[in-house]
Design a protein around this nucleic acid. Structure first.
Lengths: 191, 191, 191, 191
DNA sequence: CATGAATGAGGTTTCATTCAT
DNA sequence: AATGAATGAAACCTCATTCAT
């Protein structure tokens, strides 16, 4: 569990600085200061500012994927899978609050170069939902739009939650979103 | 109606450049080139790069508001108001394709300074929805979350549409989103 | 003759700074200071430090070539051509004293990347000599080595001249070198 | 004769790296890697990068001097001394190929600081030649210029040889240079 | 109004050197 | 003696902004 090497300290610092200032306003100097080391030290662990930022994106991606895979393991009912996937995503965002902020809020639109990588998180999640919805009997077209709608609704609520400094009850909001889509798709009795 | 002065040309150019490169990658030089004038000329019409960007945000805000107000004028039924508001928003985003891209996609997360201003578009729209939902009988809590969910779903679909170069049928998607929320809130028979 | 635009000022300054400090010790700051302008101004005229340095190399190359071509024009006797080429080269080095210093003394070994470009000056000159020597009746092998020897002898003398701040009489030295090779190749009576 | 301590390993590594990359592009890290030790170890044997480079220059200087002194020992005829000195220098450059490359090719122009030291090799060699030429009957002025010419011719040929990866036959070239100067000075019958 | 050359602060990145282990 | 992580000064280069014409 020796998880507090310099690289972890720098990642944590980068999370805070990117989260607070956004990608472009963040400076290596600020990240190094936050991690209490020299700017040169940053480059012992990351080849560039971009490399560091992408490492954070990758980290969130990995966390979300791992959590969702675990939540879906051993579950057969597609409606149940859907429910658990949504809940898992919300849980990761809540736990990795700062990381989610970096990727979902500060990273968006930061740079055309980063967009593709950052959208992998949303797309990967969206893919699960499409599959489950089709398994639940929805036709493909509506499943695709529905998955986007769900991801968008969730991201928006997380964004509001982050922006409002957690005034909003994220769990309640996630439940309400679940209810909305559940009813819309007539899945109330599928569990 | 002399709408083709230098300022309008510069705004149009800024739209294209910000939309393509994002706020930070965009340069005044590129905007001026696109508008076929010198960089100095830019500063005759905008006090700074930030000022120009915010002018675009304000422009989208104004367009959306005007269009929605017009769409709601003279309509009494709250469900009908809701329906028309959504359709008006979609219509504006479609028409002001590039502007929407700047504000919704490239502007997001660009800079903490801009966030508040840019979120006014979403919040203002969200406020209409909350009001209509409450008028339709929903309790306030669910109306707030529901409005965020709707805005998020819509923004996501517009984002996908923009990113995929309009492969997705935006009108169909907007209709499907409408159907989802309509059913979820039991408003099918309210029109 | 309006040859004193900013670019010419910067080239002159670069000549002085590169000549004094060598490529790597020279800083853009120092060049800009010498040219009495801001560092940013440097980049209005050169895309990089390397670009500027190569512009100087190219300049010397062009000067030498032009001067030699002119000196050889309308001369038929190969021994006479040889004589005039050598004298032309010496003349250019004397006139473009600082430029020669940059390319012949400071540039040598500065960077493997630059070597090829910088050796074009020597090679181009060497090629003329080889041709003339063969025309004078020398066999090719000896002409090649002889041309290198001559170029080397000349460069060394110019180098010493530059290093000693012109204490040595360059014209006398060039004449003596001419005599050496003339005798060695038995060309005393060819003119 | 314990010639394989760490310092020798580092000098050998430095030779390879300086020879390949040039003084400024060479990094301590690269030299240490090549010598299979840590960067800190480098500083146990050299006080700085400059110190290490100068040690190499000094090494070549010593080698050349030793070899020439040995070659001249017990020889009385000044023309024979001259001949043997030249051959000794060529022999050292051929044997210490990499070292010669560092000093003659990569070191040249690297840094004004190094020039003086590096030119000692040429000057020391040149001094021998001047002495021998005067002993052979040449007047001093011509002997000085002649010695520079010879050193330059030789250095150029070695430079070409190094640059062309030894395509040129160095021994043949040295012989040809010897013949050129021998004839120019009328020494053909002096041996 | 319009221009565009000039500015210079500030950012990212490199690397010689140090020092605690 | 040996290590190699850490340092931080300094370099190159960009670009928003100004101002003389």
């Amino acid at each position: 569990m020796e998880e507090h090497g310099r690289k972890e300290e720098l990642l944590k610092a980068a999370q805070a600085i990117f989260g607070h200032y956004g990608y472009h306003q963040a400076t290596i100097r600020a990240i190094a200061d936050q991690a209490q080391c020299a700017t040169g030290t940053f480059y012992l662990y990351f080849s560039s500012k971009e490399d560091c930022f992408l490492a954070l994106v990758e980290q969130l991606y990995t966390h979300v994927m791992e959590y969702i895979m675990k939540a879906r393991a051993g579950v057969d009912n597609p409606a149940e899978k859907l429910k658990r996937s949504l809940e898992a995503a919300v849980e990761v965002f809540r736990r990795d609050y700062e990381l989610a902020q970096v990727v979902l809020v500060r990273g968006a639109g930061a740079d055309p170069l980063f967009e593709d990588r950052m959208w992998r998180v949303r797309e990967a999640f969206s893919a699960f939902i499409v599959k489950d919805l089709v398994d639940c009997g929805l036709d493909y077209e509506r499943a695709v739009i529905g998955s986007h709608a769900w991801v968008g609704a969730l991201a928006e609520v997380v964004g509001v939650w982050i922006r409002q400094d957690q005034d909003l009850d994220l769990t309640q909001a996630a439940l309400e979103i679940e209810r909305i889509f559940w009813r819309a798709w007539g899945l109330e009795d599928s569990l």
